[in-house]
């Protein structure tokens, strides 16, 4: 019984997060401007990080947690650097 509930919830979460990734990817491809694409990339990062956490629950292993943490950190650094680039034209002045 409890296995069925968790399996169902994991399926729903996988589907919802996959759809969210598709929306973020669509906005990233459509633009219309560079800041939309950067924000789309950031949303895609966060959604894939959550997807990895759900994978961790599904397989019952804690290894996915480390991958999710690294994706979170890299996503923040990448978006901050890209925002700086959009504002100033270079990242390190």
């Amino acid at each position: 019984m409890s296995e069925m509930i968790v399996v169902f919830a994991v399926w729903v979460a996988h589907g919802a997060l996959a759809l969210a990734m598709i929306f973020a990817m669509a906005r990233m491809m459509r633009g219309p401007r560079a800041q939309d694409r950067v924000l789309g990339l950031d949303t895609l990062y966060v959604n894939s990080m959550l997807q990895l956490l759900v994978f961790g629950i599904r397989t019952g292993s804690t290894f996915y947690f480390e991958a999710a943490l690294i994706i979170g950190v890299l996503g923040f650094v990448a978006t901050a650097a890209l925002a700086k680039f959009l504002m100033r034209g270079e990242v390190i002045e």
Binding site: S2, A16, R27, L39, T43, L50, V54, I57
Partner: peptide, 24 residues
């Protein structure tokens, strides 16, 4: 625990989906 885990999973994933849909 199964009900709690399922509820938190569905709420979290649903809110993420709503946010990404709004972004689109």
């Amino acid at each position: 625990a199964a009900i709690l885990v399922a509820a938190f999973l569905v709420i979290g994933a649903g809110l993420t989906l709503i946010g990404s849909f709004g972004f689109w």
